[in-house]
Design a protein around this nucleic acid. Sequence first.
DNA 1: TATCAATTATGAACATAATTCATTTTTATT
DNA 2: AATAAAAATGAATTATGTTCATAATTGATA
Lengths: 200, 200
Amino acid sequence: MYKKVARREDIIQAAIEVFSKKDFQSASISEIAQRAGIANGTIYQYFKNKEDLFFSIPVEKTNEFRSQVALHLEGITGVFNKIRKFVWYFLYFFKNNPEYGRLLMLELRVNRSFVKTETYDFLKQSVRSVWDIIEEGQKEGVIRTDVDIYVLRHLVLGILEHMVSRWLLKDAQYDILEHHQQVSRILIDALRGGIPVAVD
Amino acid sequence: MYKKVARREDIIQAAIEVFSKKDFQSASISEIAQRAGIANGTIYQYFKNKEDLFFSIPVEKTNEFRSQVALHLEGITGVFNKIRKFVWYFLYFFKNNPEYGRLLMLELRVNRSFVKTETYDFLKQSVRSVWDIIEEGQKEGVIRTDVDIYVLRHLVLGILEHMVSRWLLKDAQYDILEHHQQVSRILIDALRGGIPVAVD
DNA sequence: TATCAATTATGAACATAATTCATTTTTATT
DNA sequence: AATAAAAATGAATTATGTTCATAATTGATA
């Protein structure tokens, strides 16, 4: 290896700055190159094309989200406590990473090419914890089994992603964490269904 | 008025056909013009630019959705029966209009410019019925009031939009209507909260 | 330190596609 | 048939992603 490949990071950093202000279409390669202090062509030494560069941006943050979710759930006992923590951390994370949120929620998550990438697989893994928690609850008998687990996952991720998306489209004007307890409350009621609260 | 303005409809029709196969970026004005049997420049007599044309596509369908939701809810008594019907019709509509779904769910709904258009206002109005139903339920005392109504709306629209989006990204391979009863069930449990079922 | 080859960077040239606008064609009215 | 308003045209312009032949840089070697 000759020169350090820190150059690749420079380009991604410049791309983050440009893409967080403009969307995929209006962000230009020239602007990214200029901000990175390199020539246009150099970008194509490191990335196949504009989309490849675009898709490379969220890799790091996605890994951060994934490991942090696991860390925050560590040591917590009780399925519903885990749900509460997941809800809180999900909203907390996007509150603190709105640029990543914009990229992920408003562009990548609905992009047919992106959902085929490895990064998206990583994302699914992190969100897999929701599945695990629900399964655990069903085994313990505290989460309903009369509803398909896919539907329950749609419920949890649906409200969270919807909240974050709408919040971002309203320019993150209000505090998205404000109602996290209410969100947990209704989700738990939905997941529990008719099962009464255990009194041990 | 000289010539009929049905020409505008021709362009929109051609645009629908092209945009349902390709996304905003890869659909070209030339292809739309060709399919409409006109010259490129003519499109700009009717639309400000490519985005304006793109945003004009969903107007008709959005109005159809709006009026049909109202029609389907007509005459139904009981807040939870209305919820069930809304859930069913929402999924039913997108099952039968996947191209519109792709446009709306995967492109427009997350587009910052689109959410400022009049068409989006129309859409919000149709979805406003969710708000009305919840409010009605709260007044009747069958829907919880310990949770912000915005959060309850996020819950309902969140799961529905999430289901439709993921279904479309999976190329509409399975039957999205299959679980509509389960969806209604968990939503009702969530909306009711601790309030017991009325026995009248 | 000079040389050299592998690596990396360059930016003008190219390709594609949106948009403009001076001109032409069509339409309705007299 | 003459006329003017309206509509359509498509070549020219503009904008931008991508390529590639050439130049510059780097680190090993003598």
